[in-house]
Design a binder for these strands. Structure first.
Length: 739
DNA sequence: AGTACGACTTAGGAGTTAGAGG
DNA sequence: CCTCTAACTCCTAAGTCGTACT
């Protein structure tokens, strides 16, 4: 079974390693029989309905278009893009923190980071960098002129950047809009005015040069453009292990054949006989060539990208120019699901303008479809935040183009999320008492609800919606846990009532954990598992909808995922309090921050694949360690012989010699320990991803407050993008902010 | 209560870039 | 200066949750 089966962090941090694995092959077939059909028919009906009524009943907005436009402040999000590059130099090297909890204490006292490198050095580099930048900018400008790009905003911005980005670094553009100081709409509308240029369509297919051949069964064969395009998708993935998987090959071949002419179809009947190697080589060569391009050519591409960004990357929403997140339509390709996805390898088809729904203000300048095409629909729905949508062909789900996280519309929502989590903080004790009471309930469903909630709270599990079997990888969350995903141990490793979790969660990331639970929980679990098969639901009287309905009654806005946010943020706050010591220097403090962050990442089970070069860099480190060990044993031998000398001579000189040698040993021991610690550290960080929690779970105001309290520059914690996303928090949080 | 859908958040990996080290 | 690596950005898959409907 080909599942992403990474060893789990918790596993290695807190417990003995286990070597379980194994697939889950269970079937709930009856339950889902015929679902697919119904599903699809239904969808079609709805679609028909929609196009019938789509445009009819939208309110007119009173604002006059031009007046709106006049008031637009041209805050240009991208202007200072490159500006503080110099400042960006962070101290990643010092970030390497140890995680293991038992080492926390030790390190707090023992770790003395090196002084950071001298400022002088940096100033020099900065100056150098600036010079380089200036050259680049000049080039950029000349390129603009050469290419005779209409000198619209883009140009101005570019020039503006050049002008004030440099010497007068002080002169910030116009001050940023502080949406968080404004009133929020209460009527459920998301905006009043929305204007944008529509999406950037995927580049059309460029047929291969005729020298690049495809062979079937050893014989060269020219493919028609449709079949050829799909073949190139496969050829591009040739050295990815996807292409060796049965499901991938099967799905690919089936969909590929659909694109073939009847002639091709009758010839090509076996994927094994297809030879895509020349195609694969061709693409490899192409990407090599791209890497080897001259600086000028690279710059041209950069400029073109920038132009596209300026033209399509922004919209106007309620008087403000806002950055769009994904303004490009997803190009066609082969579907890459995660984990053991039944649909891997299927053809993700090209999106045409006729598939695309545009959403914007009635009174805005509507985006134009490419010449000779039209949009599927033009809609004016201000109850939603998306600008563009289309239906994807693999799962039949809808994809959207929406705004950047720095936008008002995303920021408000994010802020609100943390406020809800803070509300939970106020009543979490009450809730915890409540679910503990419910463990004793006469009703099974209440007990199940209470135990599930306990897991969600204690272990930060996801809610766990039901999924349609066969539509996606077999993964679970709390409510969808099955009996096979847990093991109960009345006693294990000296602890009582241990529950062992082992399942694949979101993105097929394995969750493995052994936790001691309260006796009552344990007994309940035994009860829930009575007379069940491994593939039966653990909580058979519960689903996310029931759970969330219950939570909603306990607190306004409360849902299962709020617990994850709450527990993540509160953990960060606590850990920061615990780990930061006032007299430490800056790198040490940042180290503490990262450790706190890491604690959260572990709680939320945020993992990453070990870096590709991980083994190698580990080996290098190990070599160093071995060398150090050799040195150490040499030094120890020296001590011995010096001692022997001393015995014979008994003079001051040899006594001193012994002392020096002993010192050397001590020094080496210390160095060795540091290296070993570094190795452990790297090993621990190997598969922990800090980014996800930082971006989605940690109230940024906690970090901002911490920075202010200890005089840490915010750039050490948040990079440019993150600072843009969390601008609201950076602006509003003071050093005494309490989550 | 159950189901399906739509909208939106959360997620890890691939690709790209910058900057540290050789 | 060039190469190698780590960080950052982009990409899009995979979740959550509310709502409409039955």
């Amino acid at each position: 079974m080909a599942v992403i089966w990474r060893g789990n962090t918790q596993d290695r941090l807190y417990q003995d390693t286990i070597s379980s694995g194994g697939g889950n092959s269970h079937k709930h077939k009856d339950k889902y029989k015929d679902k697919e059909h119904k599903h699809k028919d239904h969808k079609k009906d709805r679609e028909r309905e929609k196009s019938k009524y789509g445009n009819s009943d939208h309110k007119e907005f009173s604002e006059k278009k031009h007046r709106e436009k006049e008031r637009i402040k041209h805050e240009d999000v991208s202007t200072d893009r490159h500006k503080d590059k110099h400042k960006e130099k962070d101290h990643r090297k010092d970030e390497s923190g140890l995680f293991i909890r038992c080492l926390f204490l030790f390190f707090r006292t023992e770790f003395k980071p090196k002084k950071i490198k001298i400022e002088n050095d940096r100033v020099d580099k900065k100056a150098k960098k600036r010079k380089q930048d200036e050259v680049q900018r000049r080039l950029m400008r000349s390129l603009f002129l050469v290419k005779d790009i209409k000198p619209k905003k883009t140009q101005k911005n570019k020039k503006g950047e050049v002008a004030d980005g440099k010497k007068k670094a002080k002169k910030e553009p116009e001050e940023k809009w502080k949406w968080w100081e404004e009133e929020r709409a209460t009527d459920g509308s998301k905006w009043r005015f929305l204007e944008h240029k529509g999406p950037v369509m995927a580049a059309p297919y460029e047929p291969l040069p005729s020298k690049v051949r495809f062979f079937y069964d050893g014989k060269q064969m020219k493919l028609g453009p449709e079949a050829e395009e799909v073949a190139t998708f496969f050829a591009k993935m040739l050295d990815h292990e996807y292409t060796t998987k049965d499901a991938f090959r099967k799905n690919f071949f089936k969909d590929w054949r659909k694109e073939m002419t009847s002639e091709e179809k009758s010839k090509i009947t076996d994927l094994k006989k297809c030879n895509f190697n020349e195609m694969g080589e061709y693409f490899k060569a192409q990407s090599e060539a791209r890497k080897a391009m001259t600086k000028d050519d690279k710059l041209k591409i950069k400029v073109e990208n920038e132009r596209l960004l300026q033209e399509y990357g922004f919209c106007i929403m309620d008087n403000h120019k806002e950055r769009i997140a994904n303004f490009r339509i997803e190009p066609p390709g082969l579907f890459r699901g995660r984990g053991d996805h039944p649909k891997m390898g299927m053809l993700k088809r090209r999106i045409r303008p006729e598939d695309i729904i545009i959403n914007c203000s009635k009174d805005s300048k509507h985006p134009k479809p490419p010449p000779g095409t039209k949009w599927k629909e033009l809609r004016h729905d201000n109850k939603v935040t998306w600008l563009v949508s289309w239906t994807e062909n693999i799962q039949g789900s809808i994809k959207y183009i929406m705004l950047n996280p720095s936008s008002r519309i995303k920021g408000e929502k994010d802020w609100q999320k943390y406020e809800t989590a803070r509300n939970l903080k106020k009543c979490v004790d009450r809730l915890r008492n409540q679910y503990r009471e419910d463990w004793k309930s006469k009703e099974m469903r209440i007990r199940q609800r209470a135990v599930a909630l306990y897991f969600i709270d204690k272990l930060a599990l996801r809610a766990g919606n039901e999924k349609e079997e066969g539509e996606s990888a077999d993964t679970v969350g709390c409510c969808s846990l099955r009996v096979e995903h847990i093991n109960l141990y009345p006693e294990k490793d000296g602890q009582e009532f241990v529950v062992e979790f082992d399942f694949l969660g979101k993105d097929s990331i394995r969750y493995y954990n052994k936790v001691p639970v309260e006796k009552r929980v344990f007994k309940n679990l035994q009860l829930f598992m009575e007379n069940k098969q491994p593939e039966d639901d653990l909580f058979d009287r519960l689903n996310t909808s029931i759970l969330n309905k219950h939570l909603q009654e306990l607190m306004d806005g409360l849902t299962a995922k709020v617990f994850r946010t709450y527990n993540a943020s509160i953990t960060l706050q606590q850990q920061l309090k615990e780990l930061t010591s006032p007299d430490e220097n800056l790198p040490a403090k940042i180290l503490s921050y990262n450790r706190a962050n890491r604690a959260v990442a572990i709680l939320c089970n945020h993992q990453r694949a070990p870096p590709k070069t991980f083994e190698k860099s580990m080996q290098n480190l190990q070599t160093k360690i071995d060398a150090k060990k050799d040195q150490l044993s040499d030094a120890k031998r020296d001590v011995k012989s010096a001692k022997a000398d001393l015995k014979v001579r008994r003079d001051e000189k040899s006594k001193k010699a012994v002392e020096t040698k002993k010192k050397a040993v001590e020094r080496l021991e210390e160095q060795l320990m540091k290296l070993e610690v570094q190795a452990t550290d790297r090993e621990e960080n190997k598969q922990i991803a800090l980014g996800t929690s930082k971006l989605n779970y940690l109230d940024p105001r906690i970090s901002v407050a911490w920075c202010k309290k200890w005089g840490i520059p915010i750039e050490k914690i948040y990079n440019k993008t993150q600072r843009e996303k969390f601008a609201w928090a950076i602006d509003m949080a003071e050093d005494d902010y309490e989550f």
